[in-house]
Amino acid sequence: MFRPSHFAALVLFALFASVVFGITQHETPRRMLRYGIYCFVLFVGSAVALSWAMYFIAR
């Protein structure tokens, strides 16, 4: 059984979803790449930010 850490699962999820979003939402390769990176950073960044927010709320 594959047991990644929460962060590794998040990164894998963000990577796969960002590739599909990038390719399907834009037409030129350059814009696909930019949008894919944008989605990846938003996925990971928002999860990390929300995690820290919950950490401080729980204290």
């Binding site: 894998l12 999820f13 796969f16 599909v20």
Partner: peptide, 8 residues
């Protein structure tokens, strides 16, 4: 697309 979806 194939690699991402099958991978996921």
């Amino acid at each position: 697309l194939s690699a991402s979806i099958v991978g996921m």
